[in-house]
Design a protein around this nucleic acid. Structure first.
Lengths: 231, 231
DNA sequence: TCGACTGTGTAGCATCGACTACAGCGTCCC
DNA sequence: GGGACGCTGTAGTCGATGCTACACAGTCGA
């Protein structure tokens, strides 16, 4: 499909080749449906470290990630923070704005330069009403998200730190891993501190746990990237 | 609306007066939409302690709770278990079966006698395709669910046990509480052991934490039911 | 080349919570 | 009444993890 993004983008912006038509979510739509969708999107580029939206901002827009990687961070009352999820091209962002007039429950921070297509709630709802198939795709995506969050709750709630780190790494590998000889390799580097935010644990504890897991042959490292070993 | 459940129910079953038309989710549908929905549902009654579906069962059906209360339990590899959520009349059950051919990720256990309307995936999808408005309602519900699960992850990941218990109680009170003088009261009793499963903590630890919270005036008790105090 | 900075690895102490054990209390059923 | 059972509350031990501090390696830029 041809994408209307280049019409909407500011002159001179370097356009990513990835566009709506390539996203898994819209693969099954007809050309007409895709065109309608693309025509309603507002395209935006965020730099590495940029923020797509802040926790407690009024939530009026949802985003499709067309390229890049974004982490969802929750700041807690007691001053600590936790990373809920890392999302990549093809995923939603801000989907919870569909619920009601609540503010965004998390902050979305770009880990790389990131390209988004945004939709206001009204636009999105009109799209779903007109093309119910898109609604079904969204429902499927959200179903999967709910499953994953359930897994995460299970992992965080009742395991030793070592199991916790392993569980989180498994989930990351499933979402962001690539199959290599002997296991799945994460496609981006994570510092122990970031892993700490993902696991709700202290950085030093992560270092120890990773050391243990490495000694047991459950993870290894390759060019600075973690590999989750099979078995 | 008139409900087709009484036609489908086995003779002699005692029918609950609560039916599709009363569920928040379908309040905004037209009569025709409601009738179509009701006509496609398979009605079922489960006794207290009964199981609607088991973790790892092939997931082919989703359910609407028409009355009763159900807890979602996840059994972990290390032998422990955690309660992910408690659902009541008007909520979904098994919504993750929409994602793909994965099995149910949790077990659904009835805390009371429970009445459900079930839909196969195919029926549900055809309903959404025909009545996109139902799809939107489902999306809104799932959005809210995702927000709640995010809160839960935040609560479980990085708080002391006392904060954790308080956080879980807040969430329960929001979903299942009733406003009373001085706070919100849970509408059903929870043993410390069950709270332990909800918080991922030891029963004894829960007893201590509740004691602390009571001493600080953050919770109190009324006829065996917990009251979350204001402020 | 040097310093600043960031990330990893190690050590030791303090604390929290898991676990076991047991007592007390109420309810239910015989 | 009495016994069985389930739930709450208390005590004490032990191990896991949080936290602070510091050393070392790698990278980047001046």
């Amino acid at each position: 499909m041809s994408c209307s993004c280049n019409l909407q983008a500011p002159p001179g912006a370097d356009l990513s080749p990835v566009c709506l038509g390539h996203l898994w979510m819209f693969r099954h739509l007809t050309e007409e449906e895709q065109a309608h969708l693309a025509g309603s999107a507002i395209r935006r580029i965020f730099p590495r470290g940029g923020t797509v939206f802040h926790q407690n901002d009024l939530a009026g827009e949802m985003f499709l990630l067309k390229s890049g990687r974004v982490k969802l961070v929750k700041y807690l009352e007691n001053g600590s923070e936790i990373t809920l999820d890392i999302r990549q091209a093809g995923d939603f962002l801000g989907e919870t704005m569909l619920a009601d007039d609540d503010p965004y429950p998390v902050t979305a921070v770009c880990l790389e330069e990131t390209l988004t297509c945004g939709f206001s709630r009204a636009v999105f709802e009109s799209i779903v009403l007109r093309y119910p198939n898109i609604g079904l795709q969204v429902i499927r995506n959200m179903s999967r998200r709910i499953s994953q969050l359930g897994d995460k709750v299970g992992t965080l709630a009742s395991a030793s730190i070592e199991e916790r780190v392993l569980g989180i790494l498994r989930q990351l590998a499933e979402q962001h891993g690539r199959v290599v000889k002997g296991g799945r390799m994460l496609q981006f580097a994570l510092t122990h501190e970031e892993l700490g935010f993902l696991c709700g644990a202290h950085r030093v504890t992560i270092t120890r746990a990773i050391g243990e897991l490495r000694a047991k042959g459950k993870v290894s490292e390759n060019q600075g990237l973690l590999v989750l070993c099979d078995g």
